[in-house]
C-alpha cells in the first residue's frame, strides 16, 4: 500500500472535515480564540474548558508529527460499522500519538505495511492520508493514519532526538520493546 493516494473522483474522505492533505496531511480540529484550547475532532459549539466556554472557535490544523504514546493491533476483525478490507482479516496496528504543541494524544490506524514489531513507545510518528476501505461501488474512502517518521528513521534507534517530554522520559528501553511473537 502506498503512502499517498492519487486524488481521483472515486476517492473520498471517510469522514468530511476531519482531515486534509492539502497542502500537507493534517488533522482539522478547532482552536479557541479566547484560551487556546485545541479540540479534535473539532468542537461545534463552545470551548470545553469549563473556565472559558467561549464560542470563538476557529478551524485549527493540528501538528502532523508527534511521538508514539502507545500502540496495539487488531488481530480479529472488528464488528460493523468497521468495513473489512481483506478476507480473511489482516491484522492492522493502531497508534496513540502525543502531539507536543497541542498537549494531547490522538489515535489513528497505522498503515498496513507497519507491524507492531516495528513500533516502540517514544517513536516519532507522522500523519499520512491512506485508504481505509473501498466500497462495492469502487469508491475508496480515505482516513488519517500514523506512520513511523522516515525523517528521523523508524526503528529502535529512532528515539534519539525525540522530545522526551512527550512521556518517554520514564521509559525503560528494555521494557518498551514488544514482548516478541511466539
Amino acid at each position: 500500500m502506498r503512502a499517498s493516494v492519487p486524488r481521483m473522483a472515486d476517492t473520498v474522505p471517510a469522514i468530511a472535515g476531519w482531515f486534509t492533505d492539502d497542502p500537507a496531511p493534517t488533522l482539522l480540529g478547532t482552536r479557541c480564540g479566547a484560551c487556546g484550547t485545541v479540540c479534535f475532532p473539532g468542537q461545534q459549539q463552545r470551548c470545553p474548558n469549563p473556565n472559558c466556554g467561549s464560542d470563538q472557535l476557529s478551524e485549527h490544523r493540528l501538528s502532523n508529527r508527534g511521538v508514539l504514546w502507545s500502540y496495539t493491533d487488531a488481530r480479529y476483525q472488528p464488528p460493523p460499522p468497521y468495513v473489512p478490507t481483506a478476507d480473511p482479516h489482516q491484522p492492522f496496528a493502531i497508534a496513540a500519538v502525543h502531539l507536543e504543541a497541542e498537549a494531547m494524544v490522538v489515535l489513528g490506524q497505522v498503515p498496513d505495511d507497519v507491524a507492531t514489531t516495528d513500533l516502540e513507545v517514544g517513536l516519532p510518528m507522522r500523519l499520512v492520508i491512506e485508504p481505509l476501505f473501498t466500497n462495492d461501488e469502487g469508491t475508496t474512502h480515505t482516513v488519517w493514519k500514523w506512520r513511523p517518521d522516515p525523517d528521523t528513521g523508524a526503528g529502535t534507534d529512532a528515539r534519539a532526538g525525540t522530545d522526551v517530554r512527550a512521556g518517554t522520559d520514564d521509559v525503560d528501553a528494555d521494557q518498551a520493546v514488544g514482548e516478541g511473537r511466539r
Binding site: 479540540c39 479534535f40 474548558n49 504514546w69 504543541a101 498537549a103 494531547m104 490522538v106
Partner: peptide
C-alpha cells in the same frame, strides 16, 4: 485517552 474517543482533551490552556 478515554473510550470511545479519538483524542484526549488538550492540556494547552
Amino acid at each position: 485517552i478515554e473510550m470511545p474517543n479519538f483524542a484526549t482533551d488538550s492540556a494547552v490552556a
